[in-house]
């Protein structure tokens, strides 16, 4: 059993297994990798590196995708305006 570490995903703390990659995280979260951008500690990752980049203690991961938006939109991935 891998050691449990703490990371942050989209601003929320989350337990994670040491050695688990970005691709593993997306798969655990049921997020389709081809539709999102991932920022790891402010570095935007290349999609082809998702499987190689393992996450470490304290890492901050942001997972972003496209939502409904026109000129000015706030809010989170549900197509609603504020």
């Amino acid at each position: 059993m891998a050691n449990e570490i703490q990371i942050q995903v989209n601003g929320e703390p989350r337990g994670w297994r040491e050695g688990g990659t970005v691709a593993d995280l997306l798969s655990d979260l049921a997020v389709a990798a081809e539709r999102v951008a991932v920022e790891l500690n402010l570095e935007i990752l290349d999609r082809k590196d998702f499987g190689q980049r393992s996450l470490c203690e304290g890492d901050r991961v942001e997972i972003l995708g496209f939502i409904g938006g026109g000129c000015e939109t706030k809010g989170e991935s549900d197509g609603r305006e504020r």
């Binding site: 601003g11 979260l29 389709a32 972003l64 939109t73 991935s77």
Partner: peptide, 28 residues
């Protein structure tokens, strides 16, 4: 046009805009 925002990771049952708007048919 679309906006870029955090993906909702707590409720994955939520649908995605791109399920409705085919990026092959439209320029996103």
């Amino acid at each position: 046009t679309v906006a870029v925002r955090r993906v909702n990771i707590t409720d994955r049952s939520k649908e995605n805009l791109l399920d409705y708007i085919d990026p092959k048919k439209y320029t996103i």
